Simulated assay, not measured.
Amino acid sequence: MGLIVQFRQVFKIIREFLAPSYRPERHYMRGPGPACAARHSH
C-alpha cells in the first residue's frame, strides 16, 4: 500500500509542476464591494 500512496504523491507533485492549478483570475477583486458602497452612500 505504501508504494501506491507514494506514487500518487509523486504524480500529484509532477502534475502541479507541469500544470499549476492556481488561477489568478479566480483570486483578484473585480471592483469595490458592498462595504465600500456602504461607506460612501451617506
Score class of each variant (00 low, 15 high):
Met1Glu: 04
Met1Pro: 01
Met1His: 05
Met1Thr: 02
Met1Arg: 01
Gly2Phe: 00
Gly2Cys: 03
Gly2Gln: 01
Gly2Ile: 00
Leu3Asp: 00
Leu3Arg: 03
Leu3Asn: 02
Leu3Pro: 00
Leu3Tyr: 01
Leu3His: 02
Ile4Arg: 05
Ile4Phe: 05
Ile4His: 02
Ile4Thr: 06
Ile4Glu: 09
Val5Arg: 15
Val5Ile: 14
Val5Glu: 15
Val5Pro: 04
Gln6Val: 14
Gln6Thr: 14
Gln6Glu: 12
Phe7Val: 05
Phe7Trp: 13
Arg8Tyr: 06
Arg8Thr: 08
Arg8Asp: 05
Arg8Glu: 07
Arg8Trp: 08
Gln9Arg: 12
Gln9Leu: 13
Gln9Asp: 05
Gln9Trp: 04
Gln9Ile: 12
Val10Leu: 13
Val10Asn: 03
Val10Lys: 10
Val10Gly: 01
Val10Thr: 12
Val10Phe: 11
Phe11Met: 12
Phe11Lys: 15
Phe11Cys: 09
Lys12Trp: 04
Lys12Ser: 11
Lys12Gly: 06
Lys12Phe: 06
Lys12Ile: 04
Ile13Ala: 12
Ile13Tyr: 02
Ile14Pro: 00
Arg15Lys: 15
Arg15Phe: 03
Glu16Arg: 08
Glu16His: 07
Glu16Ala: 08
Glu16Asp: 09
Glu16Ser: 05
Phe17Trp: 10
Phe17Met: 08
Phe17Ser: 12
Phe17Asn: 08
Phe17His: 08
Leu18Lys: 08
Leu18Val: 13
Leu18Arg: 07
Leu18Phe: 10
Ala19Lys: 12
Ala19Gly: 03
Ala19Trp: 14
Pro20Gln: 02
Pro20His: 00
Ser21His: 05
Ser21Met: 00
Tyr22Gly: 00
Arg23Cys: 03
Arg23Ser: 09
Arg23His: 09
Arg23Glu: 10
Pro24Ile: 02
Pro24His: 00
Pro24Cys: 01
Pro24Phe: 01
Glu25Val: 03
Glu25Met: 04
Arg26Ala: 07
Arg26Pro: 00
Arg26Tyr: 07
His27Gln: 05
His27Ser: 10
His27Gly: 02
His27Cys: 07
Tyr28Gln: 05
Tyr28Val: 04
Tyr28Cys: 04
Tyr28Gly: 02
Met29Asp: 11
Met29Trp: 06
Met29Lys: 13
Arg30Ala: 08
Arg30Pro: 01
Arg30Ser: 13
Arg30Asn: 11
Gly31Leu: 06
Gly31Pro: 09
Gly31Glu: 06
Pro32Asp: 05
Pro32Tyr: 08
Pro32Phe: 10
Pro32Glu: 10
Gly33Ile: 01
Pro34Val: 09
Pro34Trp: 03
Pro34Gly: 03
Pro34Asn: 06
Ala35Pro: 00
Ala35Met: 08
Ala35Tyr: 05
Cys36Asn: 02
Ala37Thr: 09
Ala37Lys: 14
Ala37Val: 05
Ala38Glu: 11
Ala38Asp: 04
Ala38Leu: 06
Arg39Val: 13
Arg39Gln: 15
His40Gly: 07
His40Met: 13
His40Ser: 14
Ser41Asp: 10
Ser41Met: 14
Ser41Gly: 09
Ser41Lys: 15
Ser41Tyr: 10
Ser41Trp: 10
Ser41Asn: 15
His42Ala: 13
His42Thr: 07
His42Trp: 06
His42Leu: 10
